[in-house]
Each structure stands twice: as structure tokens, then as C-alpha cells.
Amino acid sequence: MSPISELFLFPPPPSPFVTAMSVISFTSLAYTGFSELRGKHLHYSKFWNANPNERRKEIKLSSRAGMLFLYSPALAAALASFAIPGDLLSSTRSLLLCAALSIHFFKRVFEVLFIHQYSGQMMLDSAIVISLSYFTATVTMIYTQYLTENTAEPVLDLKYAGVVLFLIGIIGNFYHHYLLSKLRGKDDKGYKIPRGGLFGVVICPHYLFEIIGFIGVTFISQTVYALSFTLGTILYLIGRSYATRKWYLSKFENFPRNVKALIPLIF
């Protein structure tokens, strides 16, 4: 590692598994983000029915069931870390990381059950890919943190700054998901232009706060794997937000052109 990275990252553990997962997580997420830019979408939310003529034989899930399938395995993995005997959570940093991951996925499941409004379906293949990504990322992040035990801490301790960023991210993400849920009545299945919060400047503020939350998780962890997963997630959400803005422009003639995709005034 370079002297600069040693300021804020633990040395990579001597684990071929963690090294491989760092490369796989970043590469797969970055590629998926690039695919979103090119119009090849993961089939959930407003893109669940993209290219319908090519997908007639594929298995579909209800949106609620599909979303639960996305997040429940990762939540179970995060919660299970507290029940494993031994020194898996022997440090404050490890406890904070597992708590953050548990809160993140508990919020997701809570939103699926009580907040989100649904208008479409989800393709099983997309659900499997996303669920597996969240599950393996959660397990690998916790395992990588365990491997840092009894090694020298980074020069800069960012874990408490990470807690602050994580809380900002999760609260902002929840708030904008709540605003989205209030756009429709009980039996209204159509899409509308979101209003309120930061929706007046970006069409995907929930993605912006999700990025802030994952940056917070990276600061808590300060491992190469957490950094690689977060960088890949950022690239994926850049692609997804670009595709979302393009979709709104195609569906609503009155969509305000000054509203960016993800970053106010910039992108």
C-alpha cells in the first residue's frame, strides 16, 4: 500500500478470498452502472418491464416479494454476526460496522413492508443478482473487518465521522423514500414527478443519500474491501440515476430540465 492509503486504510489482509471479492465487487457494480448508462437495466422499479418482447418467458415476482428477497438475506447475515461466539465483534469498529449494516438492511425491509408503493413487478434474474450482491458484500465486509483485528490501525481514525455520515445518509434516504411513497393514492399505479426535499434539484436524492451512507460505512470500516464496494456502488448509482432522469424526460413533457440526475447543479 502507498503511504497515502495507509493514512486511512487498514493493510489488505493476506486473504485471496477478500482480494478476489474486492475486485469482483468493484468490477461487477461498475459494469452494471455502465450497462445502465447504455440502456441495459436491472429489471426492477420503473425498469421492470424494459424490453418486454424479449422477456415473456422469464419468471416475475411481485414488487413487494422481490424487494424482500433483495434485502432479507443481507439483513439476516448482519444480524447473525452478533450471535457468532468468539472475537468477531471484539472491537468498537467491528460493532459499529455490523450495527450500521443491520440498520441499513432493517430500514430497507421496513420500507418494503410499510413505506413503498408498488406499481410493477420484478424479474427473478435481476432479484437474484441484486440479492446475492448485497448478501456477499455484507458477509465479506464483516469478515474483512474481523481479519483486521490485532493489526495496526490507520493513522486517521474515521469511524466516528463515518457514523455521522451513515446517519445523515440513512435519514436522508428514508425521508426521500417517504416522499416518493406519498406521490400516489392507495389504488394509483402511475408515476408522477417527485416533489419536495431535494427532488427540486436532483431526480434521485435517495441515491445521493445512499452514497453518503455507504461512504459512512467505508469510514467506519476503513478496509480496502469496503472502499471497493462503495466505489462500485457509486458508479452503479451514477448509471442508474442517469437512466432514471432519461426515463422521466421521456415520460413527462413538463419535466424540469434544470433537475439533475444525482448531484445538484453538476450531474
Results as ranks from 00 to 15, higher is better:
1 M>L: 14
5 S>R: 14
9 L>H: 04
13 P>W: 06
14 P>L: 09
17 F>M: 10
21 M>G: 08
23 V>K: 07
29 L>R: 04
30 A>Q: 04
32 T>L: 12
35 S>F: 12
35 S>P: 10
42 L>H: 04
45 S>F: 15
45 S>H: 15
45 S>P: 09
47 F>T: 02
47 F>E: 00
48 W>H: 13
49 N>C: 10
55 R>S: 11
57 K>T: 12
57 K>D: 13
65 A>D: 11
70 L>F: 15
73 P>D: 02
77 A>F: 09
82 F>R: 02
87 D>K: 13
89 L>F: 00
102 S>Q: 04
105 F>R: 06
106 F>W: 13
111 E>L: 07
116 H>W: 03
116 H>A: 05
123 M>G: 11
123 M>W: 11
134 Y>K: 04
135 F>D: 01
136 T>M: 14
137 A>Q: 13
137 A>S: 14
140 T>W: 08
145 Q>C: 08
146 Y>L: 09
146 Y>W: 12
146 Y>M: 10
151 T>S: 05
152 A>T: 14
154 P>F: 04
159 K>T: 10
160 Y>E: 01
160 Y>F: 15
161 A>L: 14
170 I>T: 09
171 I>L: 12
173 N>A: 07
173 N>V: 04
176 H>K: 02
183 L>P: 02
188 D>F: 05
190 G>C: 15
192 K>Q: 12
193 I>S: 05
197 G>F: 06
198 L>N: 05
203 I>S: 10
204 C>R: 02
205 P>L: 00
212 I>T: 06
213 G>Q: 11
215 I>V: 15
218 T>I: 07
219 F>E: 00
221 S>N: 08
221 S>W: 03
224 V>G: 07
228 S>H: 08
230 T>R: 02
231 L>N: 03
231 L>E: 01
232 G>E: 00
234 I>V: 12
235 L>D: 01
237 L>P: 05
239 G>D: 00
240 R>H: 09
245 R>S: 07
248 Y>M: 08
251 K>C: 09
252 F>Q: 02
256 P>R: 04
257 R>A: 15
257 R>G: 15
257 R>H: 13
260 K>E: 07
264 P>C: 02
266 I>K: 04
